[in-house]
Amino acid sequence: MTWSLFWSNLANAVSLGSLYSLVAIGYTMVYGILRLVNFAHADLLMVAAYAAFYGVLVFRLPFAISVLLAIVLTAGVGVLIERRAYRPLRDSPRITAMISAIGVSFLLENLGLVLFTGRPKSFPVPGFLGASTDIAGIRVTNITFVIVFVTAILLLLLLYVIHKTKTGIAMRALARDFDTARLMGVDVDSVISLTFAIGSALAAVGGIMWALKFPQINPLMGMMPGLKCFIAAVFGGIGNVVGAVIGGFLLGVAEIMLVAFLPSVSGYRDAFAFIILIATLLFRPTGLLGEKIGEKV
């Protein structure tokens, strides 16, 4: 492998890793607070991508505005899902809520298939994002830089919110101990709604950038990336935002490099993530940065 090929693979790997990180954050925040694997999170990528698609091509809105609307809409969908499908089950066994999450994911996918048909649509990529830049003889598409840059900004913003604002403190308190936090006057419902809104908005950004990087969108586009992002969250230590980011980066880089160095196993690219998942669960269930989470009985 030549150096230039290596560098372009690395650029690709870092941008994929950033996307994984953004989506993994949503999984880890929800799991941290509700101990729920939010299967529907994956499909929010699809919701956001289609919302932006329709905004640009059907409603003829400028790209930036339709992206903003798509993010707001996706955040709204995320909050709505929590309120209708998860909140009534908050006192039920955790598995019941998970079945509900599976059902919602299934519902979103099938609704997508009905509304948007299964045929892939090509996502409108604005010219300057689709163009490439030459850096020392290596061509890198501009979207690669944008993905990494946007992810970094959003991550810093999120860390500020979680660690410096009152709402962030409430979120961390809920994750630590639900009942005590409630006794301390934390408004549980609104904090959870906000968590879903933030996680879904990040997923929306991830979904739109995913569509810019791989400009073919279809109603099932979120499924595989979603599962991998959950794996990234587990790998990094579920419940830990920084862990999710590190997990996402490592998974993205490892996946691209595996295919780059061992092209013969490229058919097993998707299996690789699951092998990481199973290895993590068996040998280090708390993940890289995770704290020990006691089972709530």
Binding site: G267, F274, L277, I278
Partner: peptide
């Protein structure tokens, strides 16, 4: 043997992963 050491949602995700690996092997 490995998966059933896990519980609850972790078991669900792990078995899902195994099923997906089986499918990918069949495909390859």
């Amino acid at each position: 043997i490995p998966a059933l050491r896990l519980k609850g949602d972790y078991l669900a995700i792990a078995t899902l992963g195994f099923a997906e690996i089986i499918r990918l092997v069949l495909q390859n």
